[in-house]
Amino acid sequence: MLIDKLHAFTSSRLAVIGFDATVQAAALSLSRPGIGLVVVCNAGGGAEGVLSKSDLVRHLSGPASKTPPVSDLMSRSIVSCSPQDDVHDVWQTMAARSLQNIPVIDVGARPLGILDIRDAMKVLFEQEEMQERMLSNYVTGVGYR
């Protein structure tokens, strides 16, 4: 199954903030239910980085200092997927890198959504259940009589 088929899930988890946004704006976005990652975009709407709840907590737990823009805190190396990627392949990448969320980015570097690992696991589990039912039906002859 392609990531594009999960658009209803991924688009609802998308949170985008500007490159010069404040830490408070990022915290507000991350405080919304179901949001675990924000995509930091440039003025043209292209993804420049990501900021997770962990990044924010790491900053807030450090020594008190001035409040930097999110561009100082974000991860610039974005691990992302495209709508045409296979869910299983993306899930493997997420598991290997211990990522809970991964942005879905189009060819123009514009964010389309955020894939949560729980959504990917749910889809993969449902696919396995369907294959098991089909195999069981084949072995028992259901639908062939």
Rank of each mutant, 00 (worst) to 15 (best):
G62I: 07
R58D: 10
D116R: 12
G49E: 09
L56G: 08
M94L: 03
I114A: 11
C81F: 03
A109K: 15
D55W: 04
I102T: 01
C41M: 12
D89H: 05
I78M: 13
S71G: 02
D89N: 07
S77D: 12
A109M: 10
G45V: 08
K66C: 00
D55E: 07
I102Y: 00
H88E: 10
I78E: 09
P63H: 13
V104I: 10
P83G: 07
A43W: 08
R76L: 14
R97F: 08
M74Y: 09
P103M: 14
S52P: 01
D86C: 09
L115K: 03
V57E: 11
L60D: 10
T67C: 05
V87C: 14
T93G: 04
D85W: 04
L115D: 03
D85F: 12
M94D: 07
T67F: 06
D85V: 11
S98H: 03
D116A: 13
R97C: 08
I105Q: 07
L56E: 13
P103R: 10
S98N: 06
S77L: 10
V50N: 09
L99R: 05
S52Y: 02
S61G: 13
A43I: 04
S80R: 05
A43R: 15
H88N: 07
R76A: 13
V104L: 03
C81W: 03
A47H: 10
R110G: 02
R110P: 00
D55R: 15
S71R: 14
L99Y: 03
L112T: 05
K53F: 13
I78K: 14
A43V: 03
Q100T: 03
A109H: 08
I105D: 02
G62T: 05
E48L: 14
L60T: 06
V104A: 04
S77N: 13
M74S: 06
R76S: 10
G62D: 10
I78P: 12
V40Q: 05
G46V: 07
K66S: 02
Q100C: 04
V87N: 05
V70C: 11
P111K: 12
N101G: 00
S75D: 13
L112D: 02
V104E: 01
V104W: 00
L56W: 10
D85Q: 13
R110C: 07
D116N: 11
S75A: 15
L56I: 10
G49P: 04
T93Y: 01
